[in-house]
Nucleic acid binder design. Structure first.
Lengths: 223, 223
DNA sequence: GGCCGCCTCACCCGATCGGGTGAGACCCTC
DNA sequence: GAGGGTCTCACCCGATCGGGTGAGGCGGCC
């Protein structure tokens, strides 16, 4: 794990439908020691073929490409070659793609006006396992995280409930009927009803539907 | 909007309970043109007092401080002085604090071993409205975003439903009873039941509880 | 015109649910 | 040992729900 990756050469591939961009990027990379461009593809499908033939460490991926776009290509590539890192390059930092790219498994998101040195550093970073984002992209992520509801403390939500009630509650939020709960917890239907009534009273809710809503709204369960 | 912020001097405050750290950070900032340290605080409460007296553009905030920690201080500060940006500095990049800091309204998250130049750049960046994250913090955010379920296309979820059914569905997921739905949509209870039955049939679900679960699980509704 | 989908409403039935009350057994604490 | 909380179960009642069936009106489409 503590191997000095700096001594290994990094095998880079370029995927972009514009030949001019490919050669420009190619030139930007070749000036760096330790970086080799081993493949160039004009669309995603072609890149996937090349990935089967060559070992690729880092792909510089355009988003807009015919046949298979950069996002889908990233997802497929990462599925079949988890070792290969993807650095997405866009013409402008259209942050509409940032989230899709990251979800697809991209390690970085930069604009094409990135300097040669920054690009070289970025390639080395993502190859080392770090993530690299353009400032605008970073801001998007920060904004996003700031709006995401914070995870709640489950224990405080469950505080008013007894052990048995928590078990019943756990079943309730799955949509189980009283009979199903009884079966799963080895209880009588009557007993389950008692616990359900206690839960409804403690939460001051009308019926099990509202219990489910309560659970999702409070983040007690989440998808 | 297109004013050249570079010509304005940036007023910086430092909040850290260790005097040695404060003076070291102070020294790192003063070497930069355009950056002035206008306040130093040894805890969050002190910083908040100083913020009422001075105009502060950027705060370099330690996380661990007595009385009021950096996270809570950030939240309070941002609430009362939205103009003031917060750059959180931690001893090690304990990413347990990254999300809390961002949620509290921090614009940046760096470790204290950041170089003087990087720190100066970071201060200028956050003052300009960008976000700055340490590489490790960036990786945390990227990992987080990658695990967040993607927002679903509502239209495709609603595809099988008629206009009226969608309205009833919208009421269903709020936990409304058939009578409440009837009241709100100016329908008979019998008619509502017909629509509910149609919805259950199309989703192949047993009862309204499962409809609510379906809605949350698919992201049709979210908190 | 005829067909079909949608919306509306009605009635019936059995199942499920929620509310109320009571009670026995157990365990822990004062 | 008296009291309180928990867990278990029982019975009753009325409300709600889901399933089945039928039917009239309306609008669009072939």
């Amino acid at each position: 794990m503590t191997e000095t990756a700096a001594t290994e050469r990094i095998r880079v591939a370029i995927a972009d439908d514009q030949a001019l961009i490919r050669s420009a990027v190619h030139a930007m990379i070749e000036v760096h020691d330790g970086l080799d461009v081993v493949a160039e593809a004009s669309d995603g499908a072609e890149l996937l073929e090349l990935a089967r033939a060559h070992r690729i460490d880092v792909v510089l991926m355009d988003v807009r490409m015919p046949r298979l776009d950069g996002i889908e290509t990233t997802a497929l590539l990462r599925r079949d070659h988890p070792h290969t890192r993807v650095l997405v390059l866009t013409t402008y930092d259209l942050d509409e793609y940032v989230f899709a790219a990251i979800r697809a498994g991209a390690s970085g998101f930069l604009t094409k006006d990135t300097s040669s040195d920054e690009l070289g550093d970025a390639i080395r970073s993502v190859h080392a396992g770090d993530s690299v984002l353009a400032p605008r992209a970073t801001a998007s992520l920060v904004d996003f995280v700031a709006t995401v509801p914070e995870p709640v403390d489950t224990e405080s939500l469950l505080a008013p409930f007894t052990a048995r009630e928590r078990e019943v509650l756990g079943q309730l939020v799955t949509g189980a009927s009283n009979d199903e709960i009884a079966e799963r917890l080895y209880l009588t239907g009557n007993t389950v009803k008692t616990h359900v009534k206690a839960i409804l009273a403690k939460l001051d809710l009308r019926d099990r539907v509202h219990v489910v809503i309560w659970a999702y709204e409070r983040g007690f369960v989440s998808r």
